[in-house]
Amino acid sequence: MNPSLQGIGMTSQRTRDRMVNRLIEQGIRSKKVLDVMRNTPRHIFVDEALASRAYEDNPLPIGYNQTISQPYIVARMTELLLNKAGHLSKVLEIGTGCGYQTAILAQLVDHVYSVERILPLQKKAKNHLFELKIKNVSYIHNDGGWGWPEYAPFDGILVSAAPPEIPEALLQQMAMGCVMVIPTGESGRQTLQRVIRSDKGYEVEELELVSFVPFLSGRE
């Protein structure tokens, strides 16, 4: 790993190890998720001025009124997706953002199809993943509420913004057995949900209170 990716001081491997120890204390159990987060340089996904805070357990601004989710939420959502679904071939991600969650997912599944409505953010994310030599990601600049029907159905869906309720188009793009992890609700009253599609319909689990940016329509 080149020096800028490896990090020094507050962006060093030792700091990533401390972050992982904290995730274990917070209840993250998946060794695969913990190992990927230990080895992925989160500091390259934020502005240089914020790099020293990259491994704190806080969301950080990434511009355009968007944030990079706190490490716990990234780990928790990824673990929730993997625990119920097992091996995942095709995962739809709604909200590429700066690409950190994308990078974590891409190291754990066969292929990520990532949708982002803000073009400059998508370009940044592509650059970050190129730098990390992560190639199993397809990107589209589009309204996340539409999903990516051309590649549906998916066996996993992860959503990084909170709509008032689950978009119907995303439910329709779930394969049988598909797991979707999504925050829903109005600002200040959002709940993380896990949805599993079966031949009986959609089973919805409400898991914990969360705080995400709102799910907006359109493109920028």
Score class of each variant (00 low, 15 high):
residue 136 N to M: 06
residue 209 L to G: 09
residue 55 Y to R: 14
residue 112 V to P: 00
residue 183 P to H: 04
residue 123 K to E: 14
residue 2 N to S: 15
residue 131 E to P: 00
residue 80 L to M: 09
residue 138 S to A: 15
residue 215 F to P: 03
residue 153 P to N: 11
residue 211 S to A: 11
residue 165 E to N: 05
residue 38 R to D: 05
residue 205 E to K: 12
residue 186 E to Q: 14
residue 193 Q to Y: 04
residue 95 G to Q: 06
residue 141 H to A: 06
residue 52 S to Q: 12
residue 103 A to I: 07
residue 172 Q to P: 02
residue 220 E to S: 12
residue 4 S to P: 02
residue 21 N to Q: 11
residue 56 E to T: 09
residue 139 Y to L: 12
residue 118 I to V: 14
residue 7 G to T: 03
residue 26 Q to F: 09
residue 183 P to G: 09
residue 63 G to L: 10
residue 158 L to Q: 03
residue 44 I to F: 10
residue 72 Y to H: 09
residue 152 A to M: 12
residue 142 N to Q: 12
residue 147 G to I: 01
residue 211 S to H: 05
residue 24 I to C: 02
residue 33 V to W: 01
residue 90 K to E: 06
residue 108 L to D: 06
residue 211 S to K: 02
residue 106 A to R: 00
residue 101 Q to I: 04
residue 143 D to P: 05
residue 167 P to I: 09
residue 65 N to M: 11
residue 26 Q to K: 13
residue 184 T to M: 15
residue 99 G to V: 09
residue 124 K to A: 08
residue 79 E to M: 02
residue 213 V to R: 01
residue 66 Q to R: 07
residue 188 G to P: 14
residue 167 P to Y: 09
residue 72 Y to I: 00
residue 196 I to E: 10
residue 117 R to N: 02
residue 202 Y to N: 03
residue 45 F to M: 01
residue 122 Q to I: 09
residue 124 K to R: 08
residue 110 D to Q: 14
residue 123 K to I: 15
residue 125 A to N: 00
residue 175 A to R: 13
residue 88 L to S: 07
residue 12 S to L: 08
residue 71 P to N: 13
residue 146 W to Y: 10
residue 47 D to Y: 06
residue 140 I to P: 03
residue 180 M to S: 05
residue 93 E to G: 12
residue 51 A to W: 08
residue 176 M to F: 15
residue 207 L to M: 01
residue 151 Y to E: 09
residue 183 P to V: 11
residue 210 V to M: 10
residue 118 I to S: 08
residue 48 E to D: 13
residue 64 Y to S: 03
residue 52 S to C: 13
residue 176 M to K: 15
residue 139 Y to C: 01
residue 187 S to T: 12
residue 1 M to G: 08
